[in-house]
């Protein structure tokens, strides 16, 4: 029975992966149309950045195969993505403002953004779950009300302002934490954590507040369920009723939400990366947009959409693992 279950699950994941590939293919088509076909004027001139020389325009035209018709151009674009080009894998060309290859930078920046987003997600869950649970156990209590109030402050605080406030307090005034910038984990783990702490907090506080409210609501619903009464009726200690029965059921729907939020942030931590001078995807896409560096914008767009499709697949698989009722049969 167990083996059969795993087999069914494996087939389901495989099917979903194939679908994800289809989605990614559509994404490439859409990005191709948006970046190459729709805008008026010569795409080679556009991709070549501000005030390009004739030489660069010619190189771009050759690199991107812009002398062919549109369908062939798309296939060449796909081919570069899949097999890479002379600048690395995936084949996204080079930045026309800096001259640097896109692919290696993309990987490096994606790492920083991933560290920022995942670290922040851990923090907002670590704050959101206990606050939400405790508020649900004592609804309308002083704790519940003040957690709502503090949460509203966090939600309505602009992220750039919160970031600068933290910098002013912990770096400029108290000197407890290092300022902006990034140190790799392998160079110095302590310095790494020190540099990441404020960006993590800045990014996570608003989410912590939102998640605390959502978890509180889910917990209140779950605590009213019949099976919670059953758990109490069989004499389980209240702590176990809350954690093992109520919290477990309440967190299942949070998985989907978390995946979507993480995926969205991977392409969109613009402000935090900018404030803390982290060279991630967010600050990159900002640079790309400001300098009309199309290859950069295209690369981040692709990564962000692929992150969304992969993370929603992960969320569905985890959901099925946690809730037997939605498992594929």
């Amino acid at each position: 029975m167990g083996g059969e279950c795993i087999c069914v699950m494996g087939r389901y994941i495989l099917r979903r992966l194939l679908w994800t590939l289809v989605v990614i293919l559509i994404v490439t088509l859409v990005t191709f149309v948006i970046f190459y076909v729709l805008p008026s004027g010569d795409p080679a001139v556009r991709f070549a950045g501000k005030e390009p020389t004739q030489q660069v325009v010619a190189q771009v035209r050759r690199d991107l195969g812009l002398n062919h018709n549109v369908a062939v151009q798309y296939l060449l674009y796909l081919k570069r993505l899949v097999v890479g080009d002379k600048y690395g894998w995936p084949g996204l060309g080079f930045s026309y403002t800096t001259g640097g290859a896109i692919a290696p930078q993309l990987w490096q920046r994606a790492q920083i953004t991933l560290q920022l987003v995942l670290g922040a997600a851990v923090i907002w869950m670590l704050i959101g779950i206990p606050v939400g649970v405790y508020a649900a156990l004592k609804p309308r209590s002083a704790f519940d009300r003040s957690s709502l109030l503090v949460g509203l402050v966090f939600i309505s605080t602009p992220v750039f302002w919160l970031g600068m406030l933290l910098l002013w307090l912990f770096w400029a005034t108290l000197g407890w934490l290092p300022g902006t910038g990034y140190v790799t984990f392998t160079t110095d783990p302590v310095a790494w954590a020190g540099h990441m702490l404020m960006p993590w907090l800045t990014l996570s506080l608003a989410f912590a507040a939102i998640y605390a409210r959502i978890i509180r609501g889910k917990m209140l619903d779950t605590l009213g369920e019949d099976y919670i009464r059953t758990a109490r009726a069989k004499g389980l200690p209240e702590r176990r009723v809350v954690t093992h029965h109520a919290l477990r059921a309440s967190l299942v729907p949070i998985v989907t939400l978390l995946a979507v939020d993480i995926a969205t942030l991977i392409g969109g931590t613009v402000v935090v990366e900018d404030v803390f001078n982290l060279q991630g995807l967010g600050s990159w896409v900002l640079y790309g947009a400001q300098n009309q560096d199309l290859p950069i914008t295209l690369a981040v767009t692709l990564v962000a959409t692929i992150a969304v499709s992969l993370l929603s697949l992960m969320a569905d698989v985890i959901y099925a693992y946690l809730d037997p009722r939605v498992r594929p049969r």
């Binding site: 019949d226 099976y227 009464r229 059953t230 758990a231 009726a233 069989k234 004499g235 809730d323 037997p324």
Partner: peptide, 21 residues
Amino acid sequence: TVRGPRIGMIFQDPLAALHPL
């Protein structure tokens, strides 16, 4: 220690009364 060892209780809708997960 009364609930369970000394008094057992069952309810109207067993699907709702059992933990679904």
